[in-house]
């Protein structure tokens, strides 16, 4: 079990945004989380690497128990890559420097080694020719691919994607999804919050539908898209497709 979540509750003041989530993810599994805005899916994802704190429940990820106060979050995060909706590439660093930074500072990889590995990752995301440019010259899709390469540079065991294509032009969505699909095929364990139903249907092993801070329904893509059980799921899917 790579990720195991039990009874996760999260409150912002009086507002309870996660009302008891249980979830497991196994090695090489691709889990897509879908649901309307405000359903708590991004918040849930952000709890998995403790960018978001939670009130009740346990999260175990790559063998680290996030509820134990002794757990070193920086060690946890080495194992858990994250890709954000807003890319968050470092504007003052070139593409290759974006990718080299964390390996050099966190795992003390030499500069030459970090560069070699970074170039290999850029090749993987199809951006070798952009290695030495600054991010401002890139398109959204290119920035997001840099962000994916940057996360992969830490050689994570799990990748978390928080609506990775929501801020992109329709034309560039495909290139990012393409990279993610390749990653899934290579056996990366992935949790993807997304509105891309096509991607969820085609690439994921399991789909989880969230609404109002609970998991309404989950199953294989065929089950969830083909024969949704709950009214809420049916209503959501009929609007999406």
């Amino acid at each position: 079990m790579i990720i195991s979540v039990e009874g996760l509750h999260k409150k912002y003041g009086q507002l309870e945004v996660l009302k008891g989530i249980d979830c497991t993810v196994t090695q090489s599994e691709v889990l897509c989380i879908i649901g309307p805005s405000g359903s708590g899916k991004s918040t849930f994802l952000r709890c998995l690497n403790f960018l978001e704190t939670f009130n009740v429940g346990t999260v175990t990820i790559c063998g680290h128990d996030l509820t134990k106060s002794k757990t070193n979050l920086n060690l946890v995060r080495r194992d858990v890559g994250m890709v954000f909706q807003s890319f968050n590439v470092f504007p003052h660093k070139t593409v290759i420097e974006n990718i080299m930074l964390a390996p050099m500072k966190v795992t003390k990889v030499s500069k030459a080694e970090a560069r070699t590995r970074g170039m290999a990752l850029l090749e993987k995301v199809g951006l070798t020719d952009k290695a030495d440019v600054y991010p401002r010259t890139l398109s959204g899709g290119q920035m997001q691919r840099v962000a994916i390469a940057r996360a992969l540079a830490m050689e994570p065991k799990v990748m978390l994607f928080d609506e990775p294509t929501s801020a992109l032009d329709p034309e560039t969505v495909g290139e990012v999804l393409g990279v993610m699909k390749k990653l899934a095929e290579e056996g990366m364990t992935m949790v993807v919050v997304t509105h891309e139903m096509g991607f969820a249907r085609e690439v994921s092993d399991r789909v989880m539908f969230m609404d109002g801070g609970v998991v309404v329904e989950e199953g294989t893509p065929a089950e969830l898209f083909g024969a949704p059980q709950h009214e809420r799921t049916k209503a959501f899917l009929s609007k999406m497709i």
Partner: peptide
């Protein structure tokens, strides 16, 4: 400075000071 940059740094395993 956008908070997302800070989060990206932390999510990569860098300490607060790094």
């Amino acid at each position: 400075v956008p908070n997302g940059l800070r989060e990206a740094g932390r999510a990569l395993g860098m300490r607060y000071d790094q």
